[in-house]
Design a protein around this nucleic acid. Sequence first.
DNA 1: CTAATACCTGAATAATTTAGTCGACTATAC
DNA 2: GTATAGTCGACTAAATTATTCAGGTATTAG
Lengths: 160, 160
Amino acid sequence: MRLTTKGRFAVTAMIDLAQRQANGPVTLAGISERQKISLSYLEQLFGKLRRHSIVASVRGPGGGYRLARAMNEVTVADIIAAVDEPLDATNCGGRENCQDEHRCMTHDLWTNLNKRMHEYLASVSLYDLVNQPKAKAIAASVAIDDRLRGSRRDNAVVSA
Amino acid sequence: MRLTTKGRFAVTAMIDLAQRQANGPVTLAGISERQKISLSYLEQLFGKLRRHSIVASVRGPGGGYRLARAMNEVTVADIIAAVDEPLDATNCGGRENCQDEHRCMTHDLWTNLNKRMHEYLASVSLYDLVNQPKAKAIAASVAIDDRLRGSRRDNAVVSA
DNA sequence: CTAATACCTGAATAATTTAGTCGACTATAC
DNA sequence: GTATAGTCGACTAAATTATTCAGGTATTAG
């Protein structure tokens, strides 16, 4: 699981779409203008989102894109996975010779963190983002945090 | 907050360091060989980690790197922030003209998700990663269990 | 039917980031 | 003094990200 500016564009565009689809299909031209993302880049991203059945297209005048499922059925993980395709199988993709004990151990630890990240992003839906009662959002993240043992929780900073 | 292969290299290297530092300073050459990361790339990464006071260096023969703080005082967010520097201030970095109502709203929603991501990564320390229940042993026993019971585990892909 | 709209596709390319390489230098242990 | 190992800077190759261009196709309006 990677989290890059590309995924950020996709999530931002999807939030825009989710917010506006009530009035019918949303055009990429509109998203492009509102979110300042180049139209062709959006076309590439939405091509992938469509092929992953996250959005559906309506062609012709008055057309555009709409969500293919309910808002709470679309997670941030779905969006990022659709757009980042290459799914980056870890270095030693399962069967590569992990001769060194320690090498394999580190590898396991990393993939485990990766898995947790994925679970977290899969727990946040488009619905959560758009209908964000702030208390709810915090409660959700705390619930996730509680599943971790012995971790530090004091440093805030959040300059992400 | 970005999560790229660069951050992955840094986290992997830090896990390796954390596991081995009990025997004294750990050399980059060793990490390079074990984790298959080019030495010079590690030098770049550890230069940043050192300048962020996450690791400390010991020069000369027998030297290497050690953690600058206790394992549970170093979070994944710390590591990634140190290595990914540019801290990617969101498009409209606070004071850019957010004339369109909707534009600003989407922006807020995005930064909120970003913040939660950061909080999550800040809740996972190096200690958590290194001292987690041995995935390997568990995986092995589960595999045996499956053969005995003939049960089917839907392997949930997670190929993040 | 025609024209306008908007999705769809692929290719070329610029910009940026990632990753690796090289060469010279500094501190320290022995 | 010599070998070890970090430190620094600059250069380069490869990959990814983002944009632009140049065509298409499906659908609606008139």
